[in-house]
Computed example of a mutant assay.
Amino acid sequence: MKYLEDFAVGQALDFPPRQVSEEEIVAFARDYDPQPFHLDKEAAKQSLFGGLCASGWHTAGMMMRMLVDNMIGKYASMGSPGVDQLRWVKPVFPGDTLHLRGEILDVRPSQSKPDRGVVTSRYEMRNQNGDIVLTMQAKGMYGRRPVQG
């Protein structure tokens, strides 16, 4: 298990890539964002996207899964007080391979709760062509390393 003290300002975070399938785009859209350009290939061709694409919320969800599987799940995570910025820069299409990179901007122990602190991070998700598809700045709460007595 890793703790707040294991984060450092300027630290780069790189995550294994993730490929996106048409089936998952449609399944997510059916349940959470049922717009034609997320559900129907023919309707999507007539949209400003020119083809079936993932919901921005789905893209954010895929990013969250990458974070949990490769970082948050290995640290003493205590949740998040929120996201400061979230942008969907370009659409994500079936077959895209997403690459996530983060940077630690701030690590701050809590003044009122000495067992935890807050890490502020900035993330960029790119597709296989290097195009940015999503950016996010967020805060995460992490437990501090227990004092060995």
Rank of each mutant, 00 (worst) to 15 (best):
S110I: 09
V26F: 01
R116Q: 09
W88F: 15
S47Y: 15
L134H: 13
V92K: 04
L67W: 11
V107S: 11
G50Q: 10
Q111T: 13
V89G: 00
D31M: 14
G82P: 04
G130Y: 05
P114F: 14
Q19F: 01
A54K: 05
E24D: 14
L48C: 06
L52Y: 00
Q137N: 04
S110D: 07
F7T: 06
S77H: 08
A138M: 15
V68R: 02
G73W: 00
Q19V: 10
R108Q: 14
E103T: 15
D84S: 11
Y3I: 02
G102M: 01
P109Q: 04
C53V: 12
D84N: 12
M78E: 12
M125E: 06
H99R: 11
E23D: 11
L100A: 13
R30V: 12
F93M: 09
Q46R: 15
V26T: 08
P17W: 01
Q85V: 15
N127I: 07
R87T: 06
R108P: 03
P91V: 00
D84T: 14
L98G: 09
H58E: 03
M125I: 14
S77E: 02
D6M: 00
V119I: 08
R145K: 13
I132V: 13
Y142L: 13
M71W: 13
F49Q: 04
G149K: 14
T59I: 11
P17A: 07
E124M: 07
M62V: 15
H58N: 02
P109R: 07
A27L: 14
Q19I: 13
P16Q: 01
V89M: 12
R122D: 04
P16M: 01
Q128I: 07
V107P: 03
P81H: 02
M78V: 05
E5R: 10
R108H: 04
S77I: 04
A12Y: 13
G95S: 12
G95H: 11
G95E: 12
G102I: 00
Y3G: 01
W88N: 04
N129Q: 11
A12C: 09
L39V: 03
Q85E: 15
G143H: 03
F28I: 05
V119Y: 07
D131P: 03
M1W: 09
Y3N: 00
A44K: 07
G61M: 03
N129P: 05
G51V: 13
R144A: 12
N70I: 00
P91A: 03
R144P: 05
I72E: 02
K113T: 12
K113N: 12
M64H: 10
Y142F: 14
S77T: 06
